[in-house]
């Protein structure tokens, strides 16, 4: 018997967008670092900043999955 909470599906959905977004951000970072290795340090902090902003949505999904308990 499989038990669970349908709110967790919301987390799955909310992870799609950030997953794609984070992929794009790091793809751009790798591209930039490969073309111009000396800009790596500067690009790294920008990439991490973009990564955390994209990640926020997934984190909201995770927290709300635990907040809203299905009956």
């Amino acid at each position: 018997m499989l038990g669970g909470n349908i709110a967790i599906l919301g987390y799955g959905l909310s992870a799609i967008g950030p997953g794609i977004g984070i992929g794009l951000i790091f793809a751009a970072y790798i591209n930039g670092a490969a073309r111009q290795p000396e800009a790596r340090g500067m690009l790294q902090s920008i990439a991490i900043l973009g990564f955390v902003l994209a990640e926020a949505l997934a984190i909201f999904g995770l927290v709300l999955a635990f907040v809203f308990k299905a009956a």
Binding site: V52, L53, E55, A56, I59, F60, L62, V63
Partner: peptide, 11 residues
């Protein structure tokens, strides 16, 4: 987001 990011990752 600042609060939930730290909490969510650790949790």
């Amino acid at each position: 987001s600042l609060c939930l990011r730290l909490f969510g990752n650790m949790f």
